[in-house]
Design a protein around this nucleic acid. Sequence first.
DNA 1: TAAATTTATTGAACAGCGTTCATAAAGTCA
DNA 2: TGACTTTATGAACGCTGTTCAATAAATTTA
Lengths: 186, 186
Amino acid sequence: MALAAASAILAQQGLEALSTRKVAKAIGYTVGTLYLVFKNLDELILHLNAATLKELESMLKAESTKHPRPHEVLHGIARVYCDYAKHQRARWSLLFTHQLAPGSQVPAWFDLMVRELFAIIEAPLQAIKANTSHSERARVARALWGGVHGVCELALSDKLKWGEQVTTESVVEVLVENFLAGLGQH
Amino acid sequence: MALAAASAILAQQGLEALSTRKVAKAIGYTVGTLYLVFKNLDELILHLNAATLKELESMLKAESTKHPRPHEVLHGIARVYCDYAKHQRARWSLLFTHQLAPGSQVPAWFDLMVRELFAIIEAPLQAIKANTSHSERARVARALWGGVHGVCELALSDKLKWGEQVTTESVVEVLVENFLAGLGQH
DNA sequence: TAAATTTATTGAACAGCGTTCATAAAGTCA
DNA sequence: TGACTTTATGAACGCTGTTCAATAAATTTA
């Protein structure tokens, strides 16, 4: 209930509007009660982020099966990723904006979810470049995905300051296209 | 004074610790006075970000002159960018974390600074691929830089979940290397 | 110099935030 | 019914951004 309410607040009122009191009120309880379910707001956000990761994962996996060739798979999931970021802006932002308190670290099960997401990208990369070491494949996947993510982030927050005929999709396209072309060359 | 104090707070106590009261106290004034200088916290941050952009610009420009070949220039400034992000974490984060209130938009002089930063990246790209249209060059520069930025961001906030032998620099290296290789191919 | 006016500064106030905790209500079992 | 456990409350604390009438200081005018 709390997670659904939080998700709704994010969708309707944005990142900044998310607060324990609003979530509590939305589900008909008081703040104190919410703190019996979640240790603190960070933990609530963590679980919300987990749900977001799950959603993203299923969407990317679905897209993966649509294309026969690995290049198309990567272009496809990049596009899906951008779309998700655009349409679920606040929820997506929360994934990255949220930085946990210094000292504490993300639980292992969350780490695992992230790794599984990266596995979706590593698979077609493996198909493009076979016989690469595990760490090399991880490096390439993270370079590509960090890249796609960065373009989405800057584009959505309007920080790339491009002209009008330049769209987010076309920039992501350029990034993936050139990266994969370069990858095939080596 | 206020900007210097804010910068110090960011460096010593991190992003979250930045508040109008702390800045005011640090310069020996009360909150009210600070609001006579800046309309609100957003405006203070805007000016702080402008200073950050200036600093970044001069560092990237300095690095640009160090290398004769455009490939080396781009690798060099990518490295400088990562270093800056790593060592001035909070200030750098503030550049991107900070999202202005809905409706209002960044002033024109700030936009111009961003465009000038991108010009530093567009120059070596122009050398690599001459005879490309203005908008195409803008697209390529933003794809590359969005990418480098994304890798830095995810790496610094520890969200890429790679193994231990994978460093931030090596991932950025992979991204730039492959992108430029692909660019040369087309 | 004295008064008038402008400028600079204050500090209290408001609403909201995350978080805690003694208190109270509701449910369970003997 | 009484004892015990679970569930929920709401007031409180210290923090946040922001505003604004009141005050102090500096400057200008008479």
